[in-house]
């Protein structure tokens, strides 16, 4: 909101170039009509071309010119945007005439000078336990992939919203330590399925291309230090 206000002020209040407005919207959770939505586009999407950030979504650079989205499921950019708006941000789908949608498109076009490829999306449908990896590496991966929403392990410090669970504590409290249905398989499932497969919530999923099993295993190793069942 502050960015949007700045855009307005810097533009002399009269007009705001659509690309500037679109850029500001990328970090604004009001893209969604849901008041409780904590996410913005940049919560899940890197904003630089060769970013190595562990985020569920691909970079927004080149997004407007890709041939398809969501691993080929969505053929239009607006359809891809609305998957996020509806599934994770719990808002109403943006119609093509919506001012915000159009501004996002103008901004994304400015970042998409050439035709981009279809990017793969491999969903891990069958959940199996993973070997725990190096906790030190796991800390790095956790900070990059998880902390932006969940905050610090055990305390939740810095989490995006009080509605987002503190892990692993709240997961352990809710699900216990069963090898089949406890906090450990729940953690893996939430990472791999997000809100889908009847898992609930609004978390996006990490496809294999965005977070490897080895990286996830290291995160599990790190979280074991805070009480995640081994």
């Amino acid at each position: 909101m502050i960015r949007l206000l700045l855009v307005g002020l810097l533009s002399g209040c009269g007009t705001v170039p659509a690309a500037d407005y679109g850029r500001a919207l990328m970090s604004d959770r009001t893209v969604s009509s849901a008041a409780s939505n904590p996410f913005s586009c940049t919560t899940c999407h890197p904003t630089t071309e060769n970013s190595t950030a562990l985020k569920p979504g691909y970079t927004i650079v080149g997004a407007a010119s890709r041939s398809a989205y969501w691993g080929g499921f969505e053929n239009t950019l607006l359809g891809a945007i609305n998957q996020c708006v509806v599934q994770f941000m719990r808002g109403r789908a943006l119609p093509p005439t919506d001012e915000k949608a159009r501004a996002l498109y103008v901004y994304l076009q400015s970042l998409s000078p050439t035709v981009g490829p279809l990017l793969p999306l491999t969903v891990v449908s069958d959940i199996v336990d993973l070997s725990s990896g190096d906790p030190a590496a796991g800390q790095t991966f956790y900070t990059d992939a998880c902390a932006g929403c969940h905050g610090a392990p055990h305390t939740g410090q810095g989490r995006l919203s009080s509605l987002i669970p503190i892990i692993p504590d709240e997961s352990v409290a809710a699900h216990g330590s069963s090898a089949q249905t406890g906090a450990r398989p729940i953690t893996i499932e939430k990472v791999r399925h997000g809100k889908f497969f009847s898992a609930g919530g609004t978390m996006p999923l990490f496809a294999l291309e965005r977070l490897s099993d080895a990286q996830l295993g290291s995160i599990l190793g790190y979280l074991e230090q805070f009480g995640l069942p081994k």
């Binding site: 307005g8 209040c13 009269g14 659509a18 607006l78 159009r102 501004a103 103008v106």
Partner: peptide, 23 residues
């Protein structure tokens, strides 16, 4: 944003490129 900008005595419009901004 409306209330903030109105307090500043200005009305903001989004300037789309001519013929642009259409999916």
């Amino acid at each position: 944003l409306g209330p903030f900008l109105l307090l500043l005595g200005c009305q903001t419009e989004i300037a789309f490129p001519l013929g642009g901004g259409h999916f």
